[in-house]
């Protein structure tokens, strides 16, 4: 390999990881004020919560675990921050992975302390439910009978002031799901389709591109597109949290990827050309 560009094809992956790590660390320590346009997807979630009926409850459904908390945790955080700022009462419910009930509860407790939100009066944790379809169909008919007790104190829901006047999905102002899975199909199919409850979705970036059809059809009022969506939401709320800081290393690492893909392809092209030259004598 006489041409150094041809060596690009066989760079040790550990060198690439080291460069990536340096970029991430520098990006986190020295945030570059990059422009961040707030898209209609994030604005849709914001407006759904902003226009929610204060007499109704907001359901924050979570289906994520520690493995995707880099995206799902900031999404849950900004939604809860907005709910508390609007003084809307909310209920947490978790499906799929029981880690999410604990992780979402930790976030809610931290924010509740900062915003003087009282458990049982302003918010409640309905806990983890293994049976997604059965629970969702139950919520449409009778929330108290379906959930029965809360997750923290194990007391009947009807004993909590936050549940006063809340009987079924008709008493729900907004449903917001933060998810690392395709649970939106269950919500749309079993709850939203038959009740027209406003539904917002906060998926990981991997899932987000295939969900635009649901936004286009109006089945989803808004969507937080992974960590970028959470950063847009922070901008709408006027706060500078983790995602605002994280957007710099996200952008820099994507630029690095572009450069590496370009160099790798050039290296492959150069090697191919050399081989052709060799074959022709």
């Amino acid at each position: 390999m006489s041409n150094p560009l041809q060596r690009l094809e066989s760079i040790d992956r550990r060198i690439l990881y080291a460069v990536l790590l340096i970029i991430v660390v520098v990006g986190l320590l020295v945030p570059i004020p990059l422009p961040l346009a707030v898209g209609p997807q994030a604005r849709g979630v914001y407006e759904a919560i902003e226009n929610a009926d204060p007499g109704k409850i907001v359901i924050v459904s979570t289906l994520w675990s520690a493995s995707t908390q880099g995206e799902n945790s900031p999404q849950t955080r900004v939604i809860l921050q907005h709910l508390m700022r609007k003084r809307l009462r909310f209920a947490l419910i978790a499906f799929g992975d029981p880690q999410s009930t604990t992780l979402a509860q930790e976030l809610a407790e931290e924010l509740a302390r900062e915003n003087s939100y009282e458990y049982g009066k302003d918010w409640i944790n309905w806990g983890f439910r293994a049976d997604i379809a059965g629970t969702l169909k139950g919520l449409v008919k009778d929330i108290n009978e379906t959930i029965k007790t809360d997750s923290i104190k194990k007391r009947p829901l009807s004993e909590y002031p936050v549940m006063q006047g809340i009987h079924n999905v008709k008493d729900v102002g907004v449903i917001a799901e933060v998810s690392a899975s395709g649970n939106y199909v269950s919500w749309l199919g079993l709850v939203v389709g038959s009740t027209n409850a406003p539904f917002c979705y906060a998926p990981t970036s991997v899932m987000a591109p295939e969900l635009y059809t649901y936004l286009d059809s109006g089945q989803m009022k808004g969507m937080l597109f992974g960590i970028k969506g959470a950063a847009e939401y922070e901008r709408l709320l006027g706060i500078r949290g983790f995602t605002t800081r994280a957007i710099t290393p996200v952008s820099l690492s994507l630029v690095l990827l572009f450069v590496l893909i370009g160099l790798g392809n050039y290296g492959m092209y150069a090697a191919k050309k050399r081989d052709q030259k060799g074959a022709n004598g």
């Binding site: 990536l20 597109f225 994280a246 996200v250």
Partner: peptide, 19 residues
């Protein structure tokens, strides 16, 4: 588009751990 989003998702997970 899905590949690009997947890369962004993985970067977000890395950034969260590094932070």
């Amino acid at each position: 588009a899905i590949f690009g989003s997947t890369v962004m998702a993985r970067m977000a997970l890395l950034i969260d751990r590094v932070w």
